[in-house]
Every structure is written in C-alpha cells, then in structure tokens.
Design a binder for these strands. Structure first.
Length: 911
DNA sequence: CATGATTAATTCGCT
DNA sequence: ATTAATCATG
C-alpha cells in the first residue's frame, strides 16, 4: 500500500528524537490496544499527535483510516492544528473530532436505517428539559416533586449506560405504551415507574420531532452500529486506528461506541489475519485502539463518566499495553509535591508520582481571609503586585474556584483594582434567551416536525398567542396524529376559535410559511436566512424598541449570531442552514477559552472544572474551605469526596511556577453568612511547602479569644486596613511570622498586631457592595465593543517581563482620555464578561468600563501635604511610592496611627 | 393576556 | 443574594 502523497513524510528521528523514553515508546508502540497513562503536564497531546504522525508515516496508514476523538471542540481544533504542522494540510481532512460530532456525521450519513430523517434536530439540555416538562405536565405530575431536571438526569444516566426505554419500561411500568394518553400511575410514589414512563414517552416524542438529544448522539450511533451490519462493516473497514483523548472521562456508552467502531467484538471479516507487523500493522481485524488519560484527573463522574473504563482497560482489551508518563514538564517540584501529597489520600488508586527536572521553585503561598470579599481583595492586590513588581502579565495569571457563584466577589475586587479580567463560563452564548429564540425559528424551519422549538416561538415575540392558542393547536395536532407545524398550517380548518386568536394564528402561519419558502430558496446562505428571520419575525424590532438597557446587548448578540452565520458560510464550501445549526448545537464553554499562548492581557477567572487541560504560570486556588471545596454535598460520600480531591489535584497541577491557596473564615451564600473551616485539602499539603502570609483569619482569632474571654478592643473594621493597603504591601506584612508555629489552625490569638478582625461579627455581607457593580454600568451594552481596539489603549506590560509576553498587552479604555495620566498607568478597565464563542475579537457580552477610581494622582501629592480620610480624619503625608496605578502613600493620622494607603481606592481628600 | 408580586431553588457541566 | 418561574390580579 502506498502512502498518501499529501502527508508530509516524517522520519523516525523527527517524531521521537526529542521525546523521553516513555513518550517515545508510546508513540511507536505496535499493538491492538494501548493505554497511555498521562499524568498532568506530561506532554500527552504531544505524544498523541506524534503517534498519529507515526502511524501515517511509519505504519503507512492513510489519513482517512484514522479517527481521533476528543471531548471538546477546542481540543479537537488544537489537535488538528498541531497535526497540521506535523503532517501538513491533509490534517484538515482527517476525522479529528469530538465524540458527538463524529456521531452526528455518522448519523447524518446512515441514520435512516434507525429511523432518523436527515435534518434531525439536536436538542440541548434546555430543549430536553422543556420537552420533559411538557410531558410531565400532561401526565399531571407534580413538577415540584419531580423536577424536569432530576427526571432528565435519570434518563441521562440510563442512556449513558445504554439502558433502552423498552427495557426499563418492561421492568417498571409494563402497562404503558408510548403515545398513550391519560395514563394513570398506580400509586403516586413509584419513582421508577414515573421515570420509566417519562423516559419512554420522551423518546417517543423525540422520535416524532425527528430529534435527538446529546446522549442520543452516542447511544443511537451505538444502536445503528449494532443493528445494521452493513454500516458497521463500513466503519470497521474505514477506521483502522482509533485514538481517544481524556479517556478517564468516557461514560459507558462512549466506551461501547469505541468498541463497536473498532469492531473489537465483531466477527472478524473473512480475510482477517492476526494483527501483523511492519507496514501492515493494524490493517486487519479490529482497529487498533489508543487511549490517553489520567485516572487522577477524572472529575466528571457526576455526569456519568465511568472511571472503570480506564482502570479496567487492560482487562477489557486483549493484549493491551500500558505506558505511564510521569515526567512533568509543566510545574515546579514544590507544586508537584503538593499535588502528589493530596492525591495520595485517595484510596484504591494506582500509585503514581509526578516528577520534574525543573527544580523546587517558589513555595506555595497561603492566605486566610476573614471573608470572601477580603479574600478577593487580597488576591486582587497580590495580582496587582505581581504585575507591577515582577512584571508578570495578567494573562499569565488565573483565579480558580469551585463554584461559579464565587466569581462575584473576585470580579468586584478586580474591578476595584482596575485589573483587566475575563470570566470563562457562566451562561453560554447559544443558550442566551434571544439567541435560543432565533435558533428556534431556524430549527423549526429546517425541521417542521420539531414541536418543541415551534412551540417555543409561538408567542415570541409577544403576539397574543398564549396557552389557549397553543392548546387548541395541540388538540388539533393530536386528533390528526400530526405535528404542531401541521396544525398551524391548517388553522383555517379549526372550528370554534376566538376570532382574535384565529387572526393572530393566521398571521403567524403566514410568517412561518413565507420564512419557510425563503429558507428553501436560500438554504446555502444561512446568514441571509438569519437576517430574514430576525427581520420578519419581529425579534429584532422587538428589542430595538425596548428601553431596557439589557436589550441593547441582546441585540448585539443577535447581530453576532448573524456574523457567525456569515463566517460559517464563508469557510464551509457546501454550507446549509442545517449545517450551521449543527455547529451551534455542539459548541460549549470550553470552546470560548482563549487560545493558549495568546496574550489577552487579562486575568482569567474560571471554575476548576473549566480549568482542566489548561496551565498558567500563576494560579490562585480560592475558597479552600470545608463546604466550599470540598463542596458540602460531596463531603459525606467517600467517592464524591475522592472526586473533589481529584479536582484539587487538577487545580494544583494547573500552576507552572507559583501556586496560591486562599480561604475565607466567613463566607455568605444564599444571603446567609456562615463560618467556614479550612479545607481538608489544605491539611493534606505538607506544611513545609506553604508559606502562610496569614494562617488564621482575624475573626478566628477572635473566636478563640471570646472563648477564653480574652479579646479586647483594638479591632478596627477590616475595611480600614483594607483600604490602607496592608494587604498588598510588601512581603510578609504583619502576619505570617506570628503564626508560623503552633497548631496549624489553632487559636494563636493575642499575638501579633491584630489590626484585622471585624467590628461586627460577620462584617462581610454588610460591607460588601459599594453598589457600583450591579445594575448601572455592567449590563449596559452601549459602550459595546469599544474594548480591544478602543481609543486610549495603554500598555500595561512592564519591561523585563519575567514570563515573556514582553509585548505588554494593550487594551482599550471605554473612557478615553479620562483623568490625567502620569506615567501612562491610569486607564480604563476592561471586564470581559465572557469570551466570544469563536469569531475573533468581540465578546458576546457588553463590556463595562466603570471606573471606581477616585481620580487622585500620585503626582499631585508631595510629602507634607494634608489630607482627610473618611475614617481617620486629618493626616499628613509622610511618604510616597510611585507604583503607577498602584501607588501608595503613607499618611500619619496622629492618634489614629500611620497608615499606608493605596491611593487609587483610599477614601481620602487632598486639602 | 400581560404585568407585578411571590416563591422556590441553588455544585461542577464535554456535547 | 439572585434569579427564574409561577401566581394572582388588572
């Protein structure tokens, strides 16, 4: 067999010459099943891409014979890109894709044989939930007790385990037939019967709507491969090498899918000979499988990932080989020691120890704050310090947390500090209401059977068609055993309808009919269809006439949807509307992550889950408290706790050079403040690795003191010190040393200058706000896309940058030229709420340029000046430190003491 | 049918 | 605290 001339031939030396022995072995291994146990930062993507190149150039495989599977589109794109540099543009034609998009391709091609019509809809979880809710309501179920979400969760579990509805129904509610109306449950509490009935009915409706949900993409592909030998045979011959990334995250269905695709269990074709060697390696019999993963980084069990897939790999696949990669190229030994120490506490795990040739590096820095706000302020201060003093680019720093809700205080602190940040996660672009509305129109046009989407838009924008009208159509559809769309098209035949409703319905029918016609005529131009829909439906007009400032950004999101469609149209030769909808259905959060190496000039905020696979020179792990992390719901159960620990392991190993761990003694959630114990994971990090800047929070010292009746005054409100800048001041400050010994979190009260501590017992919540955050400037999209290219951009990267990026990212200020600028360090701030889904540059969310700056400039002060402070009163300036926007002045307030104040935020006035 | 008021929920989230 | 969803009312 001849090699594809398009593939750039690579010599063995080029492919493995610069790898370590284990990596090299993994790249070259010949055999039917290979598990690469890739510890964090061990160069797994590199090995995977090299192995693919090796298979092409050394085994003589054709690009079309390879299937490489990842979990995210971003990972797929990245792998494809790295492959392209290795083997050339032919990589663009290869199947390098996610599980889901590979399945879509298969189902689009061969789905007819299991009853899927082309143009089927892909429901996201919101669509699925809506459908479940519709069904549950019809069955008169108490939606409060049986939430659509929990029902869907159960259905998802069943699907992930490939339990079909037929099977489950037979076991728990054999007297129900899908499509049957007026079914009564035997007795109210039979959860399994309810699940069985809803599962069956849900599948029935999906079928009627010619739709599949995410889990179905996998499950139905498995079904297809099992039921249709011809199709199975086709893929068995087609894919000779299957490679799966992040194997520890696969669920049972995905595991079976891989087996079916590879033909591991299939009867071998007649000409099968045992997997040979040399140039014909892997060319007969089942496809050769390579999986890469790290069981210590399995953090998606809660969503069905089955860690046994990777643990039992050697038993599952005959003649399997395991190669472990334990040399880490990312982090310092200190960081790895911490990670190893933590993960060792998990039971039943294969011992594995990461090591590095990089050296010890700096100690981990710890900090115990009084509350979440102060924790955030300290982190923001430390980031400002690292940036100003050590020249570390903002984009080289990341703040991680367990739950999205924790981002709030961090965002506020960064806004206060004028530090640019971007938040990854939260609501996805394609799940935003207005975007979903527009997409629902498109979906309904492409797939008229899609009742869920059509019903969604019936009254969007408001056109006086409510539950009544919907019910009438629904009835008609049922009577005729037809779709909702069919009913709509036949409104004229429906009797006994209020004239008003009839008129509105006819108008809507005409709208859909005309849009439908337009769609057929312009199917190859999705962007034009989008424009037509936005225009004719009134979606755009509705938002345009609105005065709600939020709607401005919604409008912008719609226009971005149109741009995305245009972009899709340009880069896709045979573009169709259905094709475009597919791309929108399968994008996820992680696709929004900034590309590696790209200097966005912003600090990145994200959850630990989102952080998997990423790395940053400086990482802050915040909220290290029992109940926060590990999460309260996971603390009881040993397996859930183990997963939390793996999450901690993932978090720690994201850091390349410096790791910070912080916690808050008091955290308020759901409006209620509660005392938080330090996370057990902190205890699991060896003490000598951590340099505690503050081991115990002020309130904790007080708690101890109260207990012993020893506390006395001298507790200023924490905000006093906060503004005075102690938190970001030079190293050490006043804590640390006094807590260095003794019990780790014991009460070492009474020692040290206790300028911390809150006056009120739970000072946190009351003092949090200063209200500048919420309504006003945050959501108002008017200033829109000014950032990134706006006027008055300033360069923030200081010289001598330690971690490269000497370019010093510049970013625009929404507020051009405000305030006098000395040394070019005063400028607007940029807060990107989310990163745009794909198209370069702009974000889907508006940007705020609010500036809490007090307009004071270091240049205007000199020693001896008199100032007044909101709390301390009159004082005299005794020292000035020009650190640009983080300038500090030291003021003697007489009886109130001498304070160091961060000029930018201090509540002072020059006299 | 739309609007303001009340109530309930509320980890993480690849596709 | 926040927000989404539901409920009562104009």
């Amino acid at each position: 067999m001849q090699q594809d001339p398009d593939v750039i031939a690579r010599t063995a030396e080029e492919l493995v010459g610069d790898l370590n022995p284990q990596q090299g072995e993994a790249v070259q291994y010949q055999g039917p099943a290979l598990l690469i146990g890739a510890g964090a930062g061990s160069g797994k993507t590199r090995v995977l891409t090299r192995r693919i190149a090796w298979i092409l150039s050394q085994f003589g495989a054709w690009p079309s014979q390879i299937l490489a599977i990842t979990f995210t589109n971003k990972a797929a794109a990245e792998m494809r890109e790295r492959l392209a540099t290795l083997i050339g543009p032919v990589a663009q034609r290869m199947w390098v894709s996610t599980f889901h998009s590979a399945c879509v391709r298969i189902l689009r091609r061969d789905g007819q044989s299991i009853g899927l019509k082309s143009g089927f809809s892909i429901y996201d979880s919101a669509d699925s939930e809506r459908l479940i809710k519709i069904i549950a309501t019809e069955f008169n179920l108490d939606v409060k007790r049986y939430t659509p979400r929990s029902i869907l969760g159960k259905i998802s579990d069943l699907k992930n385990n490939l339990t079909g509805w037929q099977e489950y129904l037979a076991a728990h509610a054999p007297d129900f037939t899908p499509g049957q109306r007026g079914y009564q449950f035997g007795h109210a509490g039979d959860l399994e019967a309810i699940h069985a009935v809803l599962y069956a009915e849900y599948e029935h409706r999906l079928g009627l709507a010619n739709a599949v949900d995410f889990d179905d993409l996998i499950g139905r592909t498995v079904e297809l491969l099992r039921k249709d030998p011809q199709v199975a045979d086709y893929y068995h011959h087609r894919f000779r090498y299957i490679l799966v990334d992040e194997y520890q995250d696969t669920n049972h269905a995905q595991y079976v899918l891989v087996r079916e695709l590879a033909g591991v269990d299939a009867r071998e074709s007649a000409d099968a000979t045992p997997g040979g060697n040399g140039r014909f390696a892997g060319k007969t019999g089942p496809a050769w499988i390579t999986v890469v993963g790290d069981s210590d980084q399995s953090i998606y069990a809660f969503r069905g990932a089955d860690i046994r897939n990777i643990q039992d790999f050697e038993q599952d696949f005959p003649n399997a080989k395991t190669i472990m990669l334990e040399q880490n190229y990312r982090s310092t030994q200190t960081i790895l020691d911490a990670a190893n120490a933590v993960i060792t506490n998990n039971e039943g795990r294969k011992p594995k120890k990461l090591w590095t040739a990089m050296g010890k590096g700096e100690p981990i820095v710890g900090y115990a704050a009084d509350n979440a706000q102060q924790e955030a302020a300290w982190v923001a201060g430390e980031i400002a310090r690292l940036h100003a003093e050590e020249g570390i680019a903002y984009s080289d720093m990341a703040i991680m947390y367990r739950a999205n809700a924790q981002s709030r205080s961090l965002e506020e602190a960064l806004i206060n500090g004028g530090e640019p940040y971007q938040l990854v996660g939260g609501t996805k672009f394609y799940e935003r209401r207005e975007v979903k509305d527009a997409l629902a129109y498109l979906q309904a046009l492409v797939n008229p059977d899609d009742d869920v989407n059509l019903r969604r838009i019936l009254n969007v924008p408001k056109r006086g068609l409510g539950d009544r009208a919907e019910g009438i159509l629904l009835n008609y559809a049922r009577e005729h055993g037809a779709s909702f769309f069919y009913a709509l098209m036949h409104v004229d035949e429906i009797q006994d309808m209020p004239t008003r409703t009839a008129n509105q319905l006819r108008a809507f029918r005409d709208l859909m009919a005309s849009l439908s016609q337009f769609t057929r005529a312009h199917d190859a131009k999705p962007s034009e269809v989008v424009a037509e829909v936005l225009d004719k439906s009134g979606l755009r007009a509705d938002l345009e006439k609105s005065v709600d400032p939020q709607d401005a950004s919604r409008l912008e999101n719609l226009s971005q949807l149109q741009s995305t469609a245009a972009e899709f149209e340009q880069k896709t030769p045979d573009a169709t509307l259905a094709g475009f909808l597919e791309t929108t259905a399968l994008v996820a959060d992680s696709d929004q992550l900034p590309d590696e190496g790209e200097d966005s000039g912003k600090v990145t905020l994200m959850t630990l889950h989102t952080a998997k696979g990423l790395e940053y020179p400086v990482v802050f792990l915040t909220g290290m408290e029992q109940g926060t992390f590990p999460h309260s719901r996971a603390m009881e159960d040993i397996s859930e706790l183990s997963e939390e620990r793996r999450l901690a392991y993932v978090g720690i190993t994201r850091a390349k050079r410096r790791l910070y761990v912080t916690r808050a003694a008091v955290r308020s959630q759901w409006g209620q403040a509660s005392d938080m114990m330090p996370s057990q994971f902190l205890d699991e990090i060896p003490d000598e690795l951590v340099d505690w800047k503050r081991r115990e929070a002020g309130v904790e010292r007080m708690r101890g003191a109260w207990g012993r009746d020893e506390f006395d005054d001298d507790f200023g409100g924490w905000d006093d010190d906060f503004s005075s800048g102690t938190t970001f001041g030079g190293s050490g400050s006043s804590y640390g040393s006094s807590y260095g010994s003794g019990s780790r979190y014991g009460s070492s009260y009474g020692s040290g200058s206790s300028s911390y501590g809150s006056g009120s017992r739970y000072g946190g919540s009351s003092r949090s706000g200063s209200g500048s955050y919420g309504g006003s400037s945050y959501g108002s999209g008017s200033s829109g896309r000014s950032y990134g290219s706006g006027s008055g951009s300033r360069s923030y990267g200081s010289s001598g940058s330690r971690y490269g990026s000497g370019s010093g990212s510049s970013y625009g200020s929404g507020r051009s030229g405000s305030g006098s600028s000395h040394g070019g360090t005063r400028g607007g701030k940029v807060t990107t709420r989310r990163v745009a889904p794909k198209s370069g540059g702009s974000s889907a969310q508006p940007v705020s340029s609010l500036d809490k700056d007090n307009q004071l400039n270091i240049a205007d002060f000199s020693i001896g000046d008199k100032v007044t402070h909101d709390k301390f009163g009159l004082g005299t300036v005794v020292d000035l430190q020009d650190k640009g926007r983080n300038s500090v002045i030291t003021v003697d307030f007489g009886s109130a003491g001498t304070k160091r104040l961060m000029l930018r935020v201090a509540p002072i006035e020059k006299l």
